[in-house]
């Protein structure tokens, strides 16, 4: 009985998995590391046709071709970097969700860090300016005027 239940649950899971995957093929891997690399690679590449879908999530024909190529290159023993290069050579930097760090992208990666640094400098300068202003001692004249104001307040 328990066996039947387990089997039926497994069957249900299989079919629901198939329904969610839609037009996207299921690939079998003997090696879990290879499978993880395949998943990460196909999730990190943008479908050139559908603009904001990763190729592991898109049923465009070109995405199927790209997944197939990633799979083939993995089987051929290529490294992740080689596979990414292979794709970028054909489809351009556009397909990378994470642009690589190179001359062209220093501004892209550097700008957020630069802006945070500017913000920190501004805050530090403002805090210091404010502290200096409040620490400044009053002149005798100012002190007398302040006393007068306080006394007037009290007497009224």
């Amino acid at each position: 009985m328990a066996l039947v239940r387990t089997l039926s649950v497994l069957l249900l899971l299989m079919f629901s998995g198939g329904a969610i995957a839609g037009g996207i093929e299921v690939r079998e891997f003997d090696d879990p590391v290879m499978e993880k690399r395949y998943r990460d690679l196909t999730a990190s590449m943008r479908c050139p046709l559908c603009e904001n879908q990763a190729i592991d999530d898109s049923d465009a024909p070109i995405s199927a071709d790209m997944r197939e190529r990633v799979y083939q290159l993995l089987q051929d023993g290529q490294s992740d970097i080689e596979i990414v290069d292979h794709m970028v050579q054909r489809f351009g930097d556009y397909i990378l969700y994470n642009p690589r760090l190179e001359n062209r992208t220093y501004l892209l990666w550097g700008l957020p860090i630069g802006l945070v640094l500017v913000g920190v400098i501004v805050v530090v300068l403002m805090v210091r300016a404010r502290r200096n202003a409040s620490a400044k001692a009053l002149t005798a004249e100012e002190r007398a005027r302040l006393d007068a104001l306080i006394n007037r307040e009290r007497s009224s």
Binding site: P48, L49, P61, I62, D65, R69, R90, F91, G92
Partner: peptide, 10 residues
Amino acid sequence: GDLGFELGVY
């Protein structure tokens, strides 16, 4: 679409 793939045709 093999040649198309090499050309980056999508």
